[in-house]
Design a protein around this nucleic acid. Structure first.
Lengths: 236, 236
DNA sequence: ATATAGTGTGTATTTATTACACTATGGTCA
DNA sequence: TGACCATAGTGTAATAAATACACACTATAT
């Protein structure tokens, strides 16, 4: 290694697809851009990565600024580098997706940043037209999540700490876009032995209250290695 | 969109982990760098992406320059952006991996580029010390390939057009680092119905010649959608 | 002819997946 | 307080897939 090398600098952005789950529906957090290009358009939260921060840190920054939360589950998705994707020249973007317990947030107002006029949760199957190639990025994230929940317990990142089996099933159904059989789902899920049955029940419902479960962290870790295989049953 | 925006430029590299399979062993193509930084070190083939080429095209360029081949199977792996990974400042690299039929190449000499003193196939489990974070990139590629061969027929990209079932099994064994049962392997593989039995046999061996197979392209496509699930059997 | 080295085959057992329908419970409302 | 509503919660039989396991066959070389 030599010392008098030219100093190069790398300019790129990161965008984050933030997924939430509420009332049986998957949602994505979108901002309305308040700057050019694409001023006034809906877009994914994201911005330029600073020279002294890692990409992961930049994404954590996006997540914190838009949700006020830290420690959110996130994973790098793909890097998009199409020549035409950004009008200011070919700017690549390193896209991430994040999974969020939406109910943690429901009291909190979504903050407004300098770049965004507003930030709004949009149902995944009713998205507005989006800036850049952001629609494509969302589609690709969704494909990844759809596959990943069959071998890793990331689904729980979208649920509250305590949840019912029905909520869990609805989440799988929302992600896979397909109904699952209740008995088979419960049998299989409980067999993985990663859930802890709580001595608590749902409250405030006008029908029989369902039992609450929580993820058992110790067993969770073990399963993460072995990889579980959720079925691809086709019944309805 | 406005017109008089500043023009930004994005400087980044791409590196490619090129895998080959020969005589029951997985290999990676490494170059000996002929320029700073890390002059004289072993490294992954890769270089800066030009402003007018897509990332995929840059990788195709790497592949062509190092193998003389086009149409090689390749896939984006991950983007690495650690602050310390490059001595000339934080340069991100978009890493790809590629799978190559090594025997196509065996007559061809590996070409030398301006950047590389030589390019050599190294067995995966006996790698030299590598420049940058390239060791980490290789490990991550390998993990991806290891998972991906259980649900998609990428393994065939590493085999010659016509291959024996034993070769195919050895490839799975090399990637998974684990012995498989011959009868179970054949039964399952033939059941996917993606192989075409050829009226040809191995030649030049001093023992009973094995039958040759080839991938059936039509059925291959169908399987690619449905995703197959190779087992994770544990016997030895 | 025989030694060698790898090819090729079948079955029984266990485990996982699927299909399928009724009773239990808690809350609301008349 | 009893009827009603909406959802919770449960079991079994049939089918399919995964596993464990061992020996006879064949082409060639000597």
């Amino acid at each position: 290694m030599q010392s008098n090398l030219p100093h190069l600098q790398s300019t790129f952005t990161t965008d984050c697809v933030i997924f939430g789950f509420h009332e049986g529906e998957l949602k994505v957090l979108l901002i309305e851009r308040n700057e050019y290009p694409f001023k006034g358009w809906w877009a994914l939260p994201g911005f330029f990565v600073e020279h002294n921060e890692t990409i992961d840190d930049a994404v954590k920054r996006i997540l914190y600024e838009h949700t006020g939360l830290t420690g959110i589950y996130m994973e790098q998705l793909y890097t998009f580098g199409g020549l035409k994707r950004h009008p200011q020249g070919r700017i690549i973007t390193v896209a991430y997706y994040a999974l969020l317990r939406l109910d943690d947030l429901k009291s909190r107002p979504v903050p407004i940043t300098d770049f965004a006029r507003q930030a709004v949760w949009h149902p995944l199957n009713d998205l507005p037209e989006l800036a850049f190639d952001h629609r494509h990025i969302i589609d690709k994230s969704m494909a990844k999540v759809r596959r990943k929940i069959s071998y890793s317990p990331i689904a729980f990142e979208l649920l509250p700490e305590k949840f019912t089996l029905t909520q869990l099933q609805q989440l799988y159904e929302a992600i896979w876009g397909r109904k699952l059989d209740k008995r088979n789902f419960r049998k299989k899920m409980l067999n993985y032995n990663i859930l802890k049955e709580l001595p608590e029940f749902q409250r405030g419902v006008s029908y029989r209250a369902a039992r609450l479960y929580r993820l058992d962290k110790r067993k969770y870790a073990r399963v993460f290695q072995n990889e579980m295989t959720f079925s691809r049953e086709t019944n309805g």
